[in-house]
Amino acid sequence: MRHWIKLAILAATALGLAGCQAGYGPGPGYDPNSIEGEWLDPNGIQSRFTAGRFETRTTDTNTLLATGKYTYVNRRLVQVDIRSLVRGTNARVNCSLVSPTRLNCTSSSGDQFSLTRRLV
């Protein structure tokens, strides 16, 4: 029985290392101190931050849900002005980069949510 456990651990380790060699992980130009790139929320909504522009799309149909712009308040905090295309409303959200892969956000109405960096 212990022999199978050791083999399973060895196989899992080998697969993990093979995944690293196969190109999984951050894409070219990845900066862990920047919000630039793609982020996912727990509901499967994808947000993209690129050169001061913001957009949110569904992951299944790629439907555009919201657009906007963002500005850095400091190195880890950004202010996002969002225009919801679904509701026809505007909102301001402050997002804090709490780790290279986690963005915690609070809207002006106090709603809180987190995004996880999508590593390509």
Rank of each mutant, 00 (worst) to 15 (best):
L15S: 14
A91I: 00
A66D: 06
N33G: 09
S99Y: 03
S96R: 13
Y24A: 10
T89Q: 12
A14M: 11
G44S: 03
S99G: 13
I9P: 00
G68T: 12
F54T: 03
T67R: 15
T58I: 01
T56V: 10
S99E: 04
L85I: 06
C105A: 06
F49M: 09
G27E: 11
D41C: 03
Q46E: 10
A91T: 11
T13G: 11
G25Q: 10
D111T: 10
W39K: 07
P42C: 01
S34G: 10
N90V: 05
G29A: 11
V78K: 07
A66V: 03
R2W: 02
R75C: 00
V120M: 02
L85R: 11
Y24K: 11
L17C: 12
T89I: 12
S96M: 12
T58N: 06
L65S: 05
T13Q: 03
L17S: 09
R102H: 05
Y30D: 07
F54L: 10
L17H: 05
S114E: 08
A22R: 14
F49V: 05
F49N: 04
K6P: 00
N104T: 08
T58A: 05
T71V: 14
F54K: 04
Y72V: 07
I5A: 09
R2T: 03
P28S: 10
S114Y: 04
S107W: 03
I45R: 06
S47L: 07
T50G: 02
T67K: 14
T116P: 00
E38N: 12
H3M: 02
A66F: 08
Y24L: 15
S109A: 15
G88T: 07
D111W: 09
A11S: 13
L10S: 14
I5L: 13
I45A: 05
T106N: 01
G68P: 10
P100K: 10
R87W: 02
V80W: 10
V80K: 05
R102F: 00
V98I: 15
D81I: 13
W39L: 11
R57T: 13
L65C: 08
A51H: 13
S107E: 02
T59D: 07
P28H: 07
L40W: 08
I9Q: 04
T56C: 06
G19K: 09
N74L: 08
T56W: 00
L97A: 03
R76A: 12
Q21D: 09
T50Y: 12
G37V: 04
V86Q: 13
L97V: 02
Y72T: 12
V98M: 00
V93G: 03
S109D: 12
A91C: 00
C20V: 15
T106F: 02
R83W: 03
R118E: 03
S84R: 08
S107L: 02
N104W: 02
S96C: 02
V120Q: 08
V86K: 13
L97Y: 00
A11E: 01
I9H: 01
I82A: 06
S107C: 06
T101H: 10
L119Q: 04
G23C: 11
R57A: 02
F54S: 01
T89F: 05
A66M: 11
T59P: 00
